[in-house]
Design a protein around this nucleic acid. Structure first.
Lengths: 258, 258
DNA sequence: CGCGCCATATGCCTAAAGGCACAATGACGA
DNA sequence: TCGTCATTGTGCCTTTAGGCATATGGCGCG
């Protein structure tokens, strides 16, 4: 085992910054020889998002997102079981037909012969999959065991990054795929602003999560004009005129010390 | 070397919480046999603060604070040189008279025969000293080397804790000693965003109080254009692009639960 | 002395929020 | 049935924030 402390210190310091994912990759791959890295985000309800890769081709990324993700056994596993942790490809007791197509099609074209996924919770129904890939030999059981031993640290680091940044600002996120976002229950309690309707509360939640009008419209499957209408109506009800006043009211009602 | 990964994961997860210091102690002491632990905060200008101890006596704490801290070679070293890092007692090229008194007096009464300090930056002119103590044998050079190797991780964890909480909220702090004159503290603490200048902090304070650019300009006696410049510079430093992200960062750093 | 940082200022442009008005539909209760 | 409310949509205009570039002077440091 080599010196793990320097990449570890860097990964700790990088939580909450742009460099988190890169440092996490460095840490994960520190004692495990690998040829490629891919980083993907999976949801149980949306198509995967490709976050980042090392020594992989943009063309293969495009093919994955266009077609091959359907056969991705890691993605299937997430959607079916939402299982986190270290996940070697060879252990995926997936449908053999799909796995076969993933291996014969996508992995072969990518010159990957084995893959191990490190699946970390990423907020909501999402997970972040960091994949180490081998081109010429398979991962050994001792290497998998090493990753298993270190998993709590990877998880803690990523949890800290989410906490520091908030899931909505996660640097692991990519643009939302086309299609209506599934309805989420609002986390803004009725008691905070009892005069607001359910829809209005949904919208306030997104505002307070930092989303601009265009993103909110997209998220809720409505037009920008409608979002503005809602904003207007919310401001009227709360006797304010700007978004920043909404933030302040939230501060004050939630945490009177501010 | 034993299993370091579980205490490491716990220490990572504990940053920004009440348990940070305890988990840091666990991590530091994981592979180093020790009998006692003491945790002290040193300033270059104020008397030391006793933060925490394990298997040490409250009576000895009282004696230290009443009298013996004057002879404490670690405290003297901090005041003189502000040196951080791993610091074995036997390496302190201190005044022999003072060191002698610390050893013959305080350490002997505490049944401590050797001590190693892990000195971590704690904000301002303060450092946090975590001391592993031995009752019957000295620390070996190999043990010191192990701590030296791991120091960057200890430092990164503690830096993250400070960052998450802000020095004003630091759980390592104790009540100001009697007679210390209270300092004027800005509403926006330096430690919240240490990269911001004083002027920038003034401006952020007004932004977070809900003022638009025109009002801020008026309040600070500068032009709207200059306010925009400051905003731009602040956003660059904080790696954001909008005011709403500033609100969110403030939420998250002040109250990570949001 | 040169450089970097900080604070201040100007100008121009674009993007986004806010303001206002109007419209339609559906659900619900009196 | 009617009135109210919620939700959705359109259009137009104004205000404000953000983006970018440039400039100057003061200060501290190597």
């Amino acid at each position: 085992m080599g010196n793990i402390w320097a990449p570890l210190a860097k990964a700790i310091a990088a939580t909450g910054t742009d460099k988190h994912v890169d440092c996490l990759i460095d840490l994960i791959g520190a004692d495990i020889e690998h040829d490629l890295v891919t980083v993907t985000r999976y949801s149980t309800t949306q198509t995967p998002e490709f976050v980042k890769h090392r020594r992989f081709s943009d063309e293969m990324v495009r093919r994955y997102l266009d077609n091959y993700y359907v056969f991705d056994p890691f993605y299937a596993s997430w959607r079916r079981e939402r299982r986190l942790g270290i996940m070697p490809l060879k252990r995926l007791a997936d449908e053999e037909a799909k796995r076969g197509q993933y291996i014969a099609g996508f992995l072969a074209q990518s010159e990957i012969c084995d893959e191990v996924g490190i699946m970390l919770a990423d907020g909501g129904d999402w997970c972040l999959g960091i994949f180490l890939d081998r081109s010429t030999s398979s991962f050994k059981e001792s290497e998998i065991a090493l990753l298993d031993e270190r998993l709590p640290v990877f998880e803690a680091l990523h949890a800290l990054d989410i906490k520091a940044r908030g899931a909505e600002f996660s640097r692991t996120s990519a643009p939302t795929s086309p299609g209506a976002s599934p309805r989420q229950k609002p986390t803004i309690p009725v008691s905070l602003w009892p005069e607001l309707s359910l829809r209005e509360r949904e919208l306030v939640q997104l505002v307070l999560a930092g989303h601009p009008t265009a993103t909110i419209a997209e998220r809720l499957g409505i037009t920008v004009g409608t979002v503005k209408n809602h904003r207007r109506r919310i401001y009227d009800k709360l006797d304010i005129t700007t978004e920043r006043e909404l933030f302040l009211q939230f501060f004050q009602r939630r945490d009177p010390e501010v």
